[in-house]
């Protein structure tokens, strides 16, 4: 985006990466994307007992243009899917997505005509959070894990390198159907 993307690989870039990651993770602005049951738990997380304010992100943004985290909380219907993608496109980069609950992650128990079987069909997902609905503690755990991810995210040439590595790893990964072991 800015100057930091133009830095050459090396000590300077990693230092900037650490600083940028620290700043970014410390003030993540979530966009409200409450859909169903999980939205209530998401609101609970922001309310008194669980107090998401401790992590500097209690203010849920009404407008996607001021947000950099989308918590997809609930089942995404076929009718909602284009809306969700539009909201995601309106968010400025860098942006992250937490898929909250099984319905958003995989369709969950609603394996039918109406529900998109996993929000990763529409937007790239950073954290999949299981549960129906996940407890507020689980959501906070997911958010903290995302903070770690943001902290260690790369910039500039390092980011391109990381993306290449991730793609190579994904191409080599064993498909689920060919995996052995317990049925899960």
């Amino acid at each position: 985006m800015g100057l930091e993307e133009k830095l050459p690989s090396g000590f300077l870039l990693t230092t900037v990466e650490q600083a940028a990651g620290w700043v970014r993770k410390s003030s993540v602005f979530p966009a409200t994307f409450g859909l169903a049951c999980c939205a209530i738990e998401m609101m609970t997380t922001g309310a008194g007992r669980y107090d998401l304010a401790r992590f500097g992100m209690e203010v849920f943004r009404g407008s996607p243009r001021q947000a950099d985290l989308m918590i997809v909380a609930g089942r995404v219907s076929q009718k909602m899917a284009p809306v969700l993608r539009q909201v995601y496109d309106q968010m400025p980069a860098p942006k992250w997505v937490i898929s909250m609950g099984v319905c958003a992650s995989s369709g969950g128990m609603f394996n039918n005509y109406a529900i998109v079987q996993g929000v990763d069909h529409i937007v790239p997902v950073d954290i999949y959070l299981p549960g129906c609905p996940p407890r507020p503690e689980m959501l906070m755990d997911a958010i903290l894990k995302l903070h770690q991810k943001i902290q260690s995210s790369k910039l500039g040439v390092n980011r391109e390198e990381a993306a290449r590595e991730a793609e190579a790893a994904a191409l080599k990964a064993l498909p689920t159907i060919e995996m052995k072991g317990l049925l899960r």
Partner: peptide, 27 residues
């Protein structure tokens, strides 16, 4: 309920549920 351009009437008995097979490890 359904999008305006939806084809068919989903809760009729002759309309399939529309689920997809779920993949697990080896099954």
């Amino acid at each position: 309920m359904m999008p305006d351009d939806w084809q068919g009437f989903p809760q009729r008995k002759d309309y399939p549920l529309g689920g997809i097979p779920v993949e697990y490890k080896g099954a």
